[in-house]
């Protein structure tokens, strides 16, 4: 099963290696990983999507908690959370396909952020499904390059993942 983890860590060099090492050693594949600073400058937040055996997953959660630089580990539930990814997609176009691509962009409420003679760069944010759907459609026109950020996620409502006292 897939799990989305929000991990609060010390904003220091080397922390990412420590966290990633725990997953790789137990043959866990990290499907995506996004890191950035939080509302507190000394704290970073990692959002990691992993899949693997349930029992092993529990072990990894406990091992993560043991890392000195890890302050808090929470699982973000699939429902009741806002999940977002950002992708930049470079699509090959010519005069006959340009309009159609632009139409898709409008339908998905994506943005065109660069226009070339033979290509467009499209920026899209959304959950994984939305981005996959867009990618599927654009494949017909020829995707020349794509980059995705990896998922970030936040609980809906008042619930927060925060450093305790």
């Amino acid at each position: 099963m897939k799990h989305t983890l929000a991990i609060l860590v010390e904003n220091k060099p080397g922390v990412l290696t420590r966290v990633a090492g725990l997953f790789s050693r137990r043959a866990f594949n990290i499907e995506s990983l996004a890191v950035g600073v939080t509302e507190k400058p000394d704290t970073s937040r990692m959002t990691i999507v992993v899949s693997g055996d349930e029992h092993v997953f529990e072990q990894v959660m406990k091992q993560l908690n043991k890392l000195i630089d890890v302050i808090k580990v929470s699982e973000i539930p699939g429902s009741d959370a806002v999940n977002r990814e950002l992708a930049l997609i470079k699509v090959g176009v010519d005069s006959s396909t340009r309009a159609e691509v632009m139409q898709i962009v409008t339908v998905f409420r994506a943005k065109i952020v660069d226009v070339g003679i033979k290509s467009l760069v499209i920026e899209i944010t959304g959950d994984e499904d939305k981005i996959n759907a867009m990618e599927q459609l654009l494949r017909h026109f020829g995707i020349k390059e794509m980059v995705r950020t990896g998922k970030i996620a936040i609980n809906r409502g008042a619930k927060t993942v925060k450093v305790g006292k």
């Binding site: 080397g14 290696t17 420590r18 090492g21 890392l67």
Partner: peptide, 14 residues
């Protein structure tokens, strides 16, 4: 050495 000992220390520092 901090990289090498990462999996065999409780914690390490450079």
């Amino acid at each position: 050495i901090t990289g090498i000992t990462l999996p065999v220390t409780k914690h390490n520092y450079l």
